[in-house]
Every structure is written in C-alpha cells, then in structure tokens.
C-alpha cells in the first residue's frame, strides 16, 4: 500500500485530469466523487511500479476511463441532466469557454475521449490508440470526424491538430 505522502502527491498531480475525464463521461458531481474514490483507492492499493511519470499518468487515464465506463453500465445511473449539472455549478464564467465545452460534450461519446486526450493532454493518435486499445487508424478517423463536428459547431479552421 502506498504512503499518505505518495497519495497526496498523486491527488495534487492528477485530480484535475481525473475531474476533466469525469466531465467528459459523467453526468453529475455525485458520480464524479464515486470515480475519485475508486481511482485513488485503486492507486493506494496498487503495487504497480511506474517506470516514469508518463507511465503513471497513462495508468490514471486508463483507470479513470474504465471506472467511468463501469459506472455508466449501471442503467440506474443513466439519466439526462442539464449542462449546468454536467459542468457543476458554477459553470465557467467565460461564455467562450462554456460554448466550447458545450460543443465538446455534445459530441457522441466515442469522440470525447480522443478530443480531450489530443487537444488538452497533447497525445498523438498512436499514443491514444495505445491508451484506449484502439487501432491507430480508428483514432485518426475519430479525430478527423470530431474536428469536423466541432468546426460545424464552433466555426473556425479546425486548428492544426
């Protein structure tokens, strides 16, 4: 079992990332808190030795995405909620940030992980493929299609990613 200091460091280092992945998948704060508990308890009890900070970060991404999917499989959790609830009140004050997040969250689920991992975390398509267990060509297709959908919703040139 990991020490309290290790856990504190991990929470400070990865809590924002786990929170963003939860936002991409989940509907409300209670579910997000469940995921936080699940992910960091797994970390506490895990004896995995990480070769590098990148390896540790990839572990957190995979465990968080899997935990979100497990939670969503429970049909009792499935319900429709407003964007305010998804983003947790208060919503981002800047209307542009809000518009962008609304556009990302309105994408079909299969695009949201790759959008977050590519645009925010800066992973390449091959890296995302390894993280999510998807063929790299599938990831390229998802990114291209997501970019088209976001361009339709937000305007602009679609960026260089």
């Amino acid at each position: 079992m990991r020490s309290e200091q290790e856990v504190d460091t991990a929470i400070e280092r990865y809590a924002d990332m786990v929170r963003r992945l939860c936002m991409v998948h989940l509907k409300n704060e209670a579910d997000t808190e469940d995921i936080f508990q699940t992910v960091f308890l797994k970390y506490v009890l895990s004896s995995a030795a990480f070769e590098s900070p990148e390896h540790e970060k990839a572990w957190f991404i995979r465990v968080t995405i899997n935990a979100c999917r497990d939670l969503l499989r429970s049909i009792f959790r499935r319900r429709t909620v407003s964007l305010d609830e998804v983003l947790e009140t208060p919503a981002p004050a800047d209307p542009d940030h809000r518009e962008v997040l609304e556009a990302v969250l309105s994408l079909p689920g299969k695009y949201r992980d790759v959008v977050y991992l590519h645009y925010y975390e800066g992973y390449t398509a091959p890296q995302i493929g390894r993280l999510l267990g998807k063929n790299v060509n599938t990831v390229y297709t998802l990114l291209t299609r997501a970019k088209q959908l976001l361009r339709e919703r937000l305007g602009g040139d679609g960026g260089n990613g």
């Binding site: 809590a15 786990v18 929170r19 963003r20 981002p92 962008v100 997040l101 990302v104 645009y119 976001l150």
Partner: peptide, 10 residues
C-alpha cells in the same frame, strides 16, 4: 478547446 478544459478543475 485547451483553454476551455483548463477552466475545469477539481
């Protein structure tokens, strides 16, 4: 997109 995600924090 990057800036919008940056606003989301735990």
């Amino acid at each position: 997109i990057r800036e919008a995600f940056q606003q989301v924090r735990a």
